[in-house]
Simulated assay, not measured.
Amino acid sequence: MLLHDRIAALHELGRWVESHPDVLEIAVLKSMKDNPWFTRQNIELSLCAIAEKYLEKDKLLEWTKTYDFEDLSALNIGVIAAGNIPLVGIHDLICVFVSGASAKVKLSAKDAHLIPAFIEQLIHIFPQAAAQLHIVDKITGVEAVIATGSDNTSRYFKSYFGHLPNIIRKNRNSVAILTGSETVDDMIGLAKDIFSYFGLGCRNVSMLHVPEGYDFTPLIEVFKSEYPLINDHPKYRNNYEYNLACSMLNNDQLIVSEPVLLYKRLSLLSRIATLHYWPYKDLNEVKNWLDSNRNSIQCVVGAAGARAVWHDMVEPGQAQQPALSDYADGVDTLAFINNLNQPV
């Protein structure tokens, strides 16, 4: 199977996603039933981003043109998918499929229906893909592993698969830099970067760097207007109320608002329904902090006034719209796979 055949199959898969047939709707409904965090809105957000950013022929051709693909048909790669947001493992699957290698996919119990629907349709479009794509209960008989998880699960992955070539991903979070000159559209985009998928993705903004004396009132008003119903979600509301109760008992310094609690903490990792912020005197402080924490950061969001701080700034509203070349943790997955066939 040639590269252009695989790209054509992926392009057709994208049009299948856009048409949202009954078989995909069934997978959506099953996912909503099994995982309360997978709301229809969040699943649709993921489906639209995948169809637009990952499954268009021109973008696939542009992405792959810089790689000199070897014959990887005999190579088996284990893919351990996370389940924090819908279809979060699909990019790894696309990378393996495009390369010509075979994928043995271990699904997350939190996302057990959507990826199988994609694989089934891809095989329907291109029957030869059946030799490449396999869902398994246990990863065995592979020459390399791509695994996504938490800091805790990464230790187990390294214990099991450390003897193999691997990409093992840990916790990462995203941060935004505000200057006070953001437009309403910038703040609307930032709200999307914070609240999409209930903040559960590694590309969700979990911390804000703000100038000293920053007035949060306009931003909070945008949060309320853009996500007025998020606190109606039972699990999100439970987290909000629990965090608020704990903060009141501990006399924490925070800004109480809906739909999120804002804590003055210099920490990337914020709990569900919370957001951290930290004041700065000048942007050099922010740049130094980002440099020292780069291995824990997935992406940095900022409008025009903050662009000079970081080399690869993401515009507000685009954090959950990664391109094919926006590799998780900055590790080129396709190059990793392609180089597996190179002599040591």
Rank of each mutant, 00 (worst) to 15 (best):
M1H: 10
L3D: 08
D5E: 15
D5Y: 11
A9K: 06
H11S: 13
H11N: 14
L13Y: 01
G14W: 06
R15L: 14
S19I: 06
L24C: 07
L24W: 09
I26N: 10
L29H: 10
K33A: 05
K33N: 05
N35Q: 15
W37Y: 12
E44K: 02
L45N: 12
A51M: 13
E52V: 05
Y54M: 12
Y54F: 15
E56M: 08
K57E: 14
W63L: 13
Y67V: 09
D68M: 05
E70Q: 11
L72Y: 09
L72S: 08
A74W: 13
L75N: 00
I77A: 00
G78T: 07
I80Q: 03
I80V: 15
G83D: 10
G83K: 01
N84V: 10
V88L: 14
I90N: 01
I90F: 14
H91E: 05
L93N: 00
C95W: 08
G100P: 08
A101R: 02
A103D: 10
K104C: 09
V105M: 05
K106D: 09
K106S: 08
L107H: 07
A109G: 12
L122Y: 06
I125M: 04
F126S: 14
F126G: 00
Q128V: 11
A129H: 09
L133Q: 09
L133I: 14
L133S: 03
I135P: 06
D137G: 13
K138R: 13
I139F: 03
V145D: 01
D151Y: 03
T153F: 07
S154G: 07
F157C: 06
K158G: 01
G162I: 11
L164S: 05
I168F: 08
R169A: 03
N171I: 15
R172Q: 11
A176M: 05
T179I: 10
D185I: 11
M187S: 00
I188P: 02
I194W: 00
S196K: 00
Y197V: 03
F198C: 04
F198E: 03
G199F: 02
N204C: 13
M207E: 08
H209I: 06
H209K: 11
H209N: 07
D215S: 12
P218L: 03
L219W: 00
E221G: 07
L229W: 13
H233S: 07
Y240T: 02
Y242E: 12
Y242P: 02
L244I: 13
M248P: 03
D252Q: 11
I255V: 15
I255C: 11
I255P: 09
V256Y: 03
S257E: 12
E258T: 12
V260P: 04
L261G: 08
R265N: 14
L268D: 10
R271W: 08
A273P: 03
L275Q: 04
P279Q: 08
D282L: 07
V286L: 10
N288W: 11
D291M: 08
N295V: 12
V301Q: 00
A303D: 14
G305N: 10
G305K: 07
G305L: 08
R307V: 15
A308N: 13
V309Q: 03
H311M: 09
H311Y: 10
D312F: 07
E315R: 02
P316M: 04
P322C: 07
Y327N: 13
I337D: 05
Q342V: 14
Q342P: 02
P343T: 05
